Simulated assay, not measured.
Amino acid sequence: MHALVPRESNDTSREDSVTLGIVKRTEDDLTQWLATESGFISGLCHYDSEPVVLEPYQQALLDNRSRFRWVAKSRQVGFSFLFALEALSRCHLRDGHTAVFVSYNLSDAVEKVLIARQVYEELPTAFKKKLVTDAKTELAFESNAKGRRLSRIISVPSKPPRGKRGDAYLDELAHYVNDREVYTGSTALILRSHGQLTGCSTPLGRRGIFWEIASQELRKYPHHTRQQVPWWLCRFFCLDVKRAAVEAPLMPTEERVVRFGRPVLVEQFDSLPQEDFQQEFECLLRRRVLQLLAL
Rank of each mutant, 00 (worst) to 15 (best):
residue 289 V to K: 08
residue 137 T to C: 14
residue 208 G to F: 01
residue 223 H to C: 08
residue 115 I to F: 05
residue 80 S to H: 00
residue 195 G to C: 11
residue 202 T to K: 00
residue 59 Q to S: 14
residue 269 F to Y: 15
residue 87 A to R: 01
residue 253 T to S: 11
residue 29 D to G: 10
residue 200 C to R: 03
residue 121 E to N: 06
residue 217 E to M: 12
residue 197 L to Y: 09
residue 78 G to T: 07
residue 13 S to K: 14
residue 226 R to E: 10
residue 146 K to L: 14
residue 133 T to W: 07
residue 35 A to C: 06
residue 287 R to L: 13
residue 275 E to T: 12
residue 202 T to F: 00
residue 223 H to A: 12
residue 186 S to F: 02
residue 126 A to G: 02
residue 223 H to P: 04
residue 79 F to M: 10
residue 250 L to Q: 15
residue 82 L to W: 02
residue 38 S to K: 14
residue 236 F to R: 09
residue 61 L to E: 13
residue 67 R to W: 07
residue 164 K to H: 15
residue 18 V to R: 01
residue 226 R to D: 02
residue 229 V to F: 00
residue 54 L to R: 02
residue 131 L to E: 11
residue 100 V to R: 03
residue 125 T to Q: 08
residue 210 F to T: 04
residue 143 S to W: 08
residue 237 F to R: 06
residue 33 W to T: 09
residue 170 L to K: 03
residue 32 Q to V: 03
residue 79 F to L: 13
residue 128 K to E: 10
residue 278 Q to S: 12
residue 258 V to I: 12
residue 177 V to H: 04
residue 274 Q to S: 06
residue 112 K to D: 03
residue 35 A to S: 15
residue 238 C to Q: 02
residue 151 S to K: 09
residue 218 L to E: 13
residue 190 I to T: 06
residue 24 K to S: 12
residue 276 D to E: 15
residue 114 L to D: 10
residue 283 C to R: 13
residue 153 I to V: 12
residue 262 R to G: 13
residue 236 F to S: 11
residue 90 R to T: 05
residue 182 V to R: 01
residue 163 G to D: 09
residue 268 Q to C: 07
residue 89 S to K: 05
residue 230 P to K: 07
residue 284 L to N: 03
residue 176 Y to D: 13
residue 194 H to T: 07
residue 59 Q to W: 06
residue 236 F to Q: 12
residue 158 S to G: 07
residue 38 S to A: 14
residue 289 V to E: 14
residue 112 K to Q: 14
residue 41 I to D: 00
residue 6 P to F: 05
residue 207 R to L: 08
residue 258 V to W: 06
residue 152 R to N: 03
residue 138 E to W: 03
residue 242 K to H: 13
residue 292 L to W: 08
residue 17 S to Q: 12
residue 293 L to C: 09
residue 108 D to H: 09
residue 154 I to F: 01
residue 117 R to K: 13
residue 196 Q to W: 04
residue 45 C to K: 05
residue 228 Q to C: 03
residue 288 R to P: 05
residue 252 P to K: 09
residue 123 L to A: 05
residue 294 A to N: 13
residue 49 S to E: 15
residue 54 L to I: 08
residue 272 L to P: 11
residue 258 V to A: 11
residue 277 F to C: 06
residue 287 R to C: 03
residue 214 A to C: 12
residue 213 I to R: 00
residue 294 A to P: 04
residue 226 R to C: 00
residue 152 R to F: 08
residue 144 N to Q: 09
residue 55 E to H: 01
residue 280 E to R: 03
residue 240 D to R: 03
residue 164 K to N: 08
residue 183 Y to K: 06
residue 80 S to F: 09
residue 294 A to Q: 11
residue 248 A to D: 13
residue 5 V to T: 05
residue 33 W to V: 07
residue 194 H to F: 06
residue 145 A to K: 08
residue 231 W to G: 15
residue 31 T to K: 13
residue 281 F to S: 05
residue 38 S to N: 12
residue 36 T to H: 00
residue 116 A to L: 10
residue 14 R to C: 09
residue 40 F to E: 11
residue 102 V to P: 02
residue 209 I to L: 07
residue 128 K to P: 12
residue 149 R to M: 12
residue 193 S to I: 07
residue 231 W to S: 14
residue 116 A to S: 14
residue 82 L to T: 01
residue 160 P to K: 04
residue 255 E to W: 11
residue 252 P to C: 09
